[in-house]
Design a binder for these strands. Structure first.
Lengths: 191, 191
DNA sequence: GTCTATAATGTGATAGAC
DNA sequence: GTCTATCACATTATAGAC
């Protein structure tokens, strides 16, 4: 619709994401990306005006979804049911398409991504999401539990080593553990 | 004892760790480290024979402590009491000296550190530690809970935003949440 | 133990032909 | 839409003076 390219832009994104995730953003050079695609660096610069614009293009769609999610949550009452629905929706969007890999890339390159606008935006959205997850209980323990809930969804991809496990099972387990953590938010007594 | 230097080696380590953590390993140049110390790059090469040897020197002491911890755990019975003692000891060593910063550096630069021996070793120790934390219950949920337990200790440093909170309080909260997660390991019925 | 100087290489990015 | 050629610069690392 908007490009006459035969998917070259998408192929660049796919290869870049793979290399960024595998070797890190800084360590992956444009030459490496171009070589793997069988094109030249100049070809890359036709589609993206800089290296970090590739990251931006990768993250943009994810950012939109997170914004929708945060806006939705802000409109709900701060109850356990809302928190559970929020993490469930988040998991749904995490386990779709290549977004898990985008999140893995983001999580394992946080320091470097601090200097990129796209990285700062992702960071900001994660913090706001965590904030929504413990709305009504700003105690330190609640904040920690909220953060762990998000991490549970992310890490179910690599922390769980089981032969033949399906994506749906990973998601189910992540949500099970997340629900237990969320249930403790709002119980203001500690200990 | 082994160096006649007036702590230059230590000063290099301190500045390198700070910059690696702040900007990332790849993005931090030796020139930058040398400049901040008021010496030249060549001076760095007198103390460390390469850039990644600085990382090695930073991680070595941490690796030793983790090895001790893993060996200790392997000698204990696989009970809840052992798991709790293990995470408590881990937290103690985490909250001492500049080790928290080393762990933060490690966690936020994982992808890049994969290509460094020191990084692979740290990764290996973390996995073994997680394994010890769920020994006797290798179910996916248990694996996830064990990983989250470690992350609870690490993330209590940045996930909890509270004015004037002390290190001891952070540790206490991390262990409280960790204990709850560990208590669910070994209950083989899954809700 | 720290310096100057420099080698050798790789990087992101641009200009302009086709 | 992709190419060749090249720029300007930063990088790790080394050699050798002091």
């Amino acid at each position: 619709m908007r490009e006459t390219t035969g998917g070259t832009r998408q192929r660049i994104q796919a290869v870049a994401l793979e290399l960024f995730t595998e070797h890190g953003y800084e360590k992956t050079s444009l030459r490496e990306i171009a070589e793997r695609l069988g094109v030249t660096k100049a070809a890359l610069y036709y589609h993206f005006k800089s290296k970090d614009e590739i990251v931006t293009s990768l993250v943009d769609d994810r950012l939109r979804r997170m914004d929708e999610l945060i806006a939705w949550a802000a409109d709900q009452p701060p109850t356990l049911a809302t928190r559970r629905a929020l993490i469930s929706r988040y998991a749904d969007s995490m386990f779709a398409g290549d977004l898990p890999q985008v999140m893995r890339f983001f999580e394992q390159n946080q320091t470097v991504l601090k200097s990129l606008v796209a990285g700062q935006q992702m960071r900001n959205r994660m913090m706001r999401l965590a904030h929504e997850l413990c709305r009504g209980d700003e105690s330190p323990a609640a904040q920690l539990r909220a953060a762990l809930t998000l991490f549970a969804v992310h890490s179910s991809w690599f922390a769980v080593r089981a032969p033949g496990i399906t994506d749906d099972e990973r998601k189910r387990i992540a949500l099970q553990v997340a629900d237990e953590l969320l249930a403790k938010i709002g119980e203001n007594g500690q200990g």
